[in-house]
Design a protein around this nucleic acid. Structure first.
Lengths: 203, 203
DNA sequence: TAGAATTTCCTACAACTGTTAGGCAACTGG
DNA sequence: CCAGTTGCCTAACAGTTGTAGGAAATTCTA
């Protein structure tokens, strides 16, 4: 019932594409409206405001990322699974830098005030948890003991996210081994660290 | 000559303080003008525009960070130097999260067009190089061979920057070992990686 | 087929930010 | 005391966010 046209999902998908095209900072109500061929007040029928729009894009993109990572992790364990996991995230970030930016540029409120918070923060938190669970699966496949799981996830996330962020920012573009050459070495070192954590070697 | 009052340095220092207080995104011409008790057009006597303001804050803060890191690295080598280096950056980021944000949220243009670029991009590039040189000093103190220097710097930067970024974003606030407890373990693993690179162990 | 309900989209408007232009006032140096 | 220099201002315009209220289009129902 009602007149067909834009809906919330279409608006958010278009916003994600816009992030890749012009950068996450360019995802504003007016720019998006122009891209969709409507006037800006129209978008307020689908999102409650600019921050809701951005948070919704973050949730949408976190889901896409979890889908892609999860598909790449279909089989394997230990080192193979680590490489599949990390490569999937890096490929996603390089193919869609604006989308990847959206996954990082969002502060998660410590206590989400569900009364005044936009409707999308819950989605973003849930999608974030999906990604965290995938990281946990990698660590568990190494046989890391439960006491070390959180540590191993933090180490792995820090390296993967840190390398990709710096690479995307261009920090590796002006020194000599190309970034593609040092990435496998980073995964080698990370693999050694995870095996060490799994076998209980601490210190 | 002339009337005393604000100057470019005072404006940029106030902008850095504002970043810590309200976040780097809040560093805008009008908000800064209100905080300084002047009208917004006044600031155009000191910066060429909003992007110049942000870039200048980045350069200023990168210099502060290099000063702090360099002071902390006064003595020591190998593992001690690594801990001094990494702790200095982490302390800086936790004490001044808005300033730390400023160091990351800036794309360095691949070919800085000196004709149309704001006057501050050169400063930011130079200050960035200062920080890169400090990272290189840590790696060299491990005795890493020249062929592995770039790799070691990338690994160390990725881990340190990645961990600090995720910690600041609150990603570690809801799982059990507190972030302070896993940070030394991360440095342990990183120390092992750097020693491995130094002794020439490459798969 | 006529009408009702629902949803989309619009124009109009208010408030704020970034920016330019031009002018007044205050301080410094001779 | 005067000239030069500098800092800050008001005025004005374009662009963005967000609100209010209304017109059109589509679907469901009678």
């Amino acid at each position: 019932m009602g007149r067909p046209g834009l809906n919330r999902a279409a608006v958010i998908a278009a916003a994600a594409d816009l992030a890749d095209e012009l950068g996450f900072d360019a995802v504003t109500i007016s720019v998006l409206a122009r891209h969709l061929g409507v006037r800006s007040p129209t978008l307020y029928s689908h999102v409650t405001g600019a921050t809701d729009l951005r948070t919704a894009v973050t949730a949408y993109v976190l889901d896409e990322l979890a889908d892609a990572t999860s598909a790449a992790m279909a089989a394997g364990e230990g080192r193979d699974l680590l490489v599949a996991y990390a490569d999937a995230i890096r490929d996603f970030a390089r193919r869609s830098p604006g989308r990847y930016d959206a996954t990082t540029r969002q502060r998660v409120p410590p206590a989400p005030d569900s009364s005044s918070a936009p409707p999308s923060v819950g989605d973003a938190i849930a999608a974030g948890r999906r990604n965290a669970d995938l990281a946990l699966a990698v660590v568990r496949s190494y046989g890391v003991a439960e006491a070390g799981e959180t540590y191993a996830v933090r180490l792995m996330s820090s390296i993967v996210h840190g390398y990709i962020t710096l690479e995307l920012a261009g920090s590796f573009a002006h020194s000599d081994p190309p970034s593609d050459a040092t990435w496998p070495e980073v995964l080698d070192d990370l693999d050694r660290c995870l095996r060490g954590t799994a076998t209980g070697r601490r210190r």
